[in-house]
């Protein structure tokens, strides 16, 4: 990939990406850039959107695709759940299973389940199960405050 940096004396900084198609590397670059604006770069029907993390209820990975759920919409996050975990956001997200991350702000109610699992009821009535493996960390997080 050819990288050109053009210095300007006046006007706003601008970054243009010229590509034949959006490769994973380009998507990662876009995600990285959007981090600085505090918004997450997501896709919906091939359209690009910038989503504030505060609107995200949870993220789920299905067949190597990461879906982002808000109250009204479902988007595709163009990277893995792990890369989302690495983002700096003011929201508190928690990895509750191998394939899911929840926004704790939208957890309405919790219920202790058999075998040390936890049922988290989200705003909108959706139920997410926090695995036994992650439940201990979740309890610590709640008791210890923001980690």
């Amino acid at each position: 990939m050819k990288v050109t940096i053009e210095k300007i004396l006046t006007g706003q900084d601008e970054l243009i990406i010229r590509c034949k198609e959006e490769t994973p590397l380009i998507r990662q670059i876009m995600t990285l850039l959007d981090e600085s604006t505090g918004k997450i770069y997501v896709l919906k029907e091939k359209e690009k959107h910038l989503l504030p993390p505060s609107q995200i209820l949870y993220l789920e990975s299905v067949d190597e695709t990461t879906y982002v759920y808000t109250r009204d919409d479902i988007y595709v996050y163009p990277a893995s759940l792990s890369s989302f975990e690495g983002l700096e956001t003011p929201e508190v997200f928690f990895r509750c299973s191998k394939s899911m991350i929840i926004n704790i702000r939208y957890v309405e109610r919790l219920k202790s389940l058999p075998y040390n699992k936890i049922d988290a009821e989200l705003t909108g009535g959706e139920h997410v199960i926090i695995n036994r493996h992650y439940a201990a960390t979740f309890r610590e997080l709640l008791r210890g405050g923001k980690s």
Partner: peptide, 16 residues
């Protein structure tokens, strides 16, 4: 445990 969890959740959100 559920009661305790919900209390912890409330405190956590208030702190946030």
């Amino acid at each position: 445990e559920s009661e305790q969890l919900n209390n912890d959740l409330m405190s956590f959100k208030n702190q946030l």
